[in-house]
Amino acid sequence: MVGDWWQDINDSTQWQDGVFYTLCAAYALVSAVALVRVSASPHPRLSLSYKNVARSLPSDKLRVFYISVNAAMYFIQVCIWVYLWIDDNSVVELIGKIFIAVLSILAALSFLVYGGRLFFMLKRFPIESKGRRKKLHEVGSVTAICFTCFLIRCFVVLLSAFDADASLDVLDHPVLNFIYYMLVEILPSALVLYILRKLPPKRISAQYHPIC
């Protein structure tokens, strides 16, 4: 009975459409909130903390390295997508999933390492430092959320690469896909936006100089 119920949902056009439109609405809502937040304050408070605390780290070429690595990763991913669009090759599809899984675990480890370093650097600040407790909460929470969601993504993508029943195709597994994308993308993004909901007020003063 359970198997029949589950298969009926997977084969249901109504469920497929419902999950698809619900995910679209959720992504649109999170994106709209993020856009409003960025438009209201082009210099979010947490990024300022990262910049200030990370001044002691060797970061002369960090931005160039970051942009180059991201451009290379996106280029490789687009090439895989184009190849699969031209020729639906199972081997290339497997390689593409493994590639995404590797990127996910690297991203998770990066958040864990650098977020952890920043957390402990903040923790060593004097106890009377203004906003120290709040910054610790923000950095710790964002690090934990990002590490967890990328780790889940890595596990699920690897599972789908070697188990056809765990496919991430929205049209084949609407409920599983709803749970997956809510856990690894929508809810983490919403939580991060909530944690960083209080932006610093804009100050216009001759004594004020923006931190870059």
Rank of each mutant, 00 (worst) to 15 (best):
A72L: 06
K51P: 04
V78C: 13
S47A: 11
S47L: 14
R55P: 05
L57P: 00
M73P: 01
V19K: 14
G18H: 10
A71R: 00
V30I: 15
E93L: 06
A72G: 05
L84G: 02
D60C: 01
D4N: 08
R45H: 13
V78W: 15
V30H: 05
S47Q: 15
Y50C: 12
D11W: 04
E93R: 11
Q7A: 14
W85V: 04
L84I: 01
V64F: 09
I80E: 01
V30S: 09
Y50R: 09
L84H: 01
L84T: 01
L29T: 09
A28E: 07
L23H: 13
Y66M: 11
D4P: 02
V38I: 14
Q16I: 08
S90P: 03
D17G: 08
L46V: 08
Y27G: 03
N10G: 10
S56D: 09
A28K: 06
D4Q: 12
T13A: 10
A54M: 15
L57K: 04
A32S: 14
V38L: 12
N89C: 01
V38P: 06
K61V: 10
S31V: 03
Y21F: 15
W15P: 10
P58K: 02
V53C: 10
V30F: 05
D8W: 08
L94F: 09
N52H: 14
Y66R: 09
N52Q: 15
Q77W: 04
N70L: 09
H43F: 12
S39G: 06
Y50T: 10
T13I: 13
D88L: 08
Q77T: 07
Y74F: 10
A32N: 07
G18D: 09
A25W: 09
L84D: 03
V36Q: 12
S31Y: 08
